[in-house]
């Protein structure tokens, strides 16, 4: 997991590898802390993620809810096709915006 502070109002978090149940258990405390620590809109760069299961999706939804409570947004960016298929199957797009690239996500957030 790599956190980049893009500006005073925007951070980018890049995840990589397999977001399966075992990986999410290891990653979630660190990820939730990064989301909670920053009062910034957050782009979640999924370009390095090879697989995402329901616990990964739950982690993303929890982050989106936590940010929304502070008036901030989460945007999911650049998922690979298999990950995008899973995200679309569960209908996450009705809750959290998803963009084809990190550039599109920045554009959507006005950055």
């Amino acid at each position: 997991m790599q956190v980049t502070e893009v500006s005073a109002s925007l951070q980018q978090i890049a995840l990589s590898g397999f977001l399966d149940a075992a990986a999410v258990e290891r990653l979630e405390p660190q990820f939730a802390a990064a989301v909670a620590a920053a009062d910034r809109d957050t782009i979640l760069d999924l370009s390095g993620v090879d697989y995402c299961g329901s616990l990964g999706i739950r982690m993303m939804l929890a982050a989106a809810k936590a940010l929304q409570k502070r008036g901030r947004k989460l945007v999911l960016a650049a998922p690979q096709p298999p990950v995008r298929t899973v995200l679309e199957t569960v209908g996450i797009g009705s809750l959290v915006p998803m963009t084809a690239s990190v550039g599109d996500a920045r554009h959507q957030l006005g950055a």
Partner: peptide, 21 residues
């Protein structure tokens, strides 16, 4: 599948939905 709005959405229970799909 999930439905908005975000603040009311369930956050778990998606695993069996995916298996069924």
């Amino acid at each position: 599948a999930l439905e908005g709005p975000l603040e009311e959405a369930r956050i778990g229970g998606l695993g069996l939905f995916l298996v069924e799909q």
